[in-house]
């Protein structure tokens, strides 16, 4: 049951990214280009996504536990620390160079494998570098 639900949730995520235009890197880059031909579409993606996600979280908070698992595993509301700021800054630079973040890259990889595979391999290497440095 969990597997089928997870497959459907992944499908909703992938389909949403695809129809939102987020699988096209130039659409991201044009959103990030305030000094160029600005494409504000990404604002609408977040404007559609965040309130609906918030509703799901609100409904979760009214229950003792989620419907299909016995515990809740969401990140703690921690403090702002150096890694958060530094890591996000590096992430943003990479996002601005490639016009891709992880979700859309997975969503686009079967559509445009010759362009996206290199990105995804580099992404996994960057993630592995983190494990080497910080988890040794």
């Amino acid at each position: 049951m969990k597997s089928i639900v997870a497959l459907i949730l992944g499908g909703l995520f992938g389909g949403g990214l695809y129809y939102a235009g987020m699988t096209n890197p130039s659409k991201i880059l044009n959103f990030l280009d305030l000094a160029g031909q600005w494409d504000p579409s990404l604002v609408f993606v977040m404007g559609g996504g965040i309130p609906v996600a918030a509703l799901g979280y609100f409904l979760l908070m009214r229950r003792q536990k989620p419907v299909l698992f016995n515990d809740i595993q969401v990140p703690k509301f921690g403090d702002i620390d150096r890694p958060l700021v530094l890591g996000s800054a590096i992430f943003g630079i990479g996002w601005g160079i490639a016009g891709m973040c992880p979700g859309p890259a997975f969503a686009a990889v079967l559509l445009e494998p010759q362009a996206i595979l290199g990105y995804l391999i580099a992404l996994l290497l960057g993630s592995l570098l983190y494990e080497r440095i910080h988890r040794a």
């Binding site: 890197p25 890694p83 958060l84 700021v85 530094l86 890591g87 996000s88 800054a89 590096i90 992430f91 943003g92 630079i93 990479g94 996002w95 601005g96 160079i97 490639a98 016009g99 891709m100 973040c101 992880p102 890259a105 362009a115 996206i116 290199g118 990105y119 995804l120 391999i121 580099a122 992404l123 996994l124 290497l125 960057g126 993630s127 592995l128 570098l129 983190y130 494990e131 910080h134």
Partner: peptide, 15 residues
């Protein structure tokens, strides 16, 4: 795409 992907992969883990 490769440079960006690497920075995204590393930065997202740190952050």
């Amino acid at each position: 795409l490769i440079i960006g992907g690497f920075l995204v992969g590393y930065g997202s883990r740190v952050g």
